[in-house]
Design a protein around this nucleic acid. Structure first.
Lengths: 249, 249
DNA sequence: TCCCTTTGTTCCATATAATGAAACATATAT
DNA sequence: ATATATGTTTCATTATATGGAACAAAGGGA
């Protein structure tokens, strides 16, 4: 495993939180010698992973090309999109699709609402598995042993005002949601945002993805939730079926 | 500039044309020792650039994350999208937006048609500057010296049945299109596909992007072109204006 | 069931490349 | 004109990569 490659990619990570940076700024953020940073940055520019304009570096278009390749090769995403579009029409809220990537969830598709207030989620964004309805539904239906190991080791960081940061609260929540086969969140990933999520199962009966509707809290009254849950479950069922999942019972 | 980093990324390039590969397949394609390939592939997996499942490697989700960051940071794309959506409504054809990336054009936005026949373009895809209306409009309005140098050195490869592969033909075409301020292509990037493209100018008066409508050839009669060109020019003008371009005369 | 082949993974001696301080180049501020 | 800051290049030293050989695992054929 190449240490130099890994080190060079530390530079790319800076651009997750910074749209553009000078060489000097990267040196300060990374606390590495400027010659080293300079050399690595030039490599990334040569690869098209960074672009340099007037002493400023920013993410390069080659990442867009690769990123879109990844997107178009996600079968689940192609299968889900028309169903998500219908669900958005039915519920009038934004619809999200996540899959697991290690200890995080990554949003792989979103159908945005036309309603005035939007939520923060964007395709490509990540969230920890414990926070927010859609990521947490993946945790809820994770294989039991793996789930316990994750809960035991994860550092529960508060992200928004209602993020769950107590392990026992998280465990209780998961038990409850496992039974009712959906989860709800209010202000866990973003203040004043709510979401309802259900699992999508694959041909092995494993939770392969999470499907959710999301919007501002005031549009997620108990009545609204009661109305949207069956629609969500139905949509997830359609996607699961196309993934080869056979429903038990 | 790091040789090791550049070499490791040769592996990623394999996945442009291959959705998934085994270690052995990569060794054969790259003609490198398998230990070397193994080591580099592990680095890419550790970075999230590759994902390994059952002895198969494929592009990793980290590229999706970075790719979408690039997409959402393209100001031009945010400005253009609503105008592109309107243009698609008006013309009923797919609308594309490209920018230049070195000697290639890269598609950064697309509003697809609801009409039955689609064209190949996808966000993130690249094309040479000489082929197809949208990429070629960038070449048409390139700074003269640079344009001549590009035409002199580019290897004109036939991509579809009508790809321009004669330098003189290309030069004549550019002169003609520069005058009428738009270009048309039939079967240059993909057989049986047509497109009309116009330039988008930035605040410096330089061609910053190309805007096109595209569809199957039979929907691009001379009458249809005459109808769509003014709409395209108007849409491009709107985008140019928002980019700070002041029209001459 | 055994043996052979293929492919993935690890080891380790050797070769190559990376490293980073110093120096140089350029631009900007005073 | 000079000083400072930042980007870029040089080069002696250090660290890491390299890749053949060996090992491990899986699958196919007799």
């Amino acid at each position: 495993m190449n240490k130099t490659v890994v080190k060079t990619m530390e530079i790319l990570k800076l651009f997750i939180d910074h749209e553009r940076l000078t060489l000097q700024e990267m040196v300060e953020l990374l606390q590495m010698p400027k010659t080293s940073v300079y050399r690595m940055a030039q490599s990334l520019v040569e690869l098209g992973f960074l672009h340099k304009t007037n002493d400023y570096y920013q993410l390069g278009l080659t990442l867009l090309s690769f990123g879109m390749l990844v997107a178009e090769r996600l079968d689940l995403r192609q299968i889900a999109l028309p169903i998500m579009q219908q669900l958005k029409e039915d519920t009038k809220e934004a619809v999200n699709l996540v899959i697991r990537d290690g200890d995080e969830a990554i949003y792989i598709e979103k159908v945005d609402t036309s309603e005035p207030v939007r939520v923060y989620t964007k395709v490509g964004r990540r969230a920890p598995l414990y926070a927010g309805a859609c990521p947490r539904i993946l945790l809820t239906f994770m294989e039991r042993d793996e789930q316990q190991r994750y809960i035991d080791r994860v550092q529960l960081v508060k992200i928004a005002k209602n993020t769950i940061v107590q392990r026992d609260t998280l465990r209780d929540r998961i038990e409850q949601d496992r039974k009712r086969q959906y989860t709800v969140s209010y202000s866990e990933l973003e203040d004043y945002s709510a979401a309802i999520a259900v699992p999508i199962f694959n041909h092995e009966g494993k939770a392969a993805a999470g499907l959710s509707v999301a919007g501002p809290e005031h549009r997620f009254s108990p009545e609204a939730i009661e109305r949207m849950v069956p629609m969500l479950k139905q949509a997830a069922q359609q996607i699961s079926t196309q993934l080869g999942f056979s429903r038990k019972g």
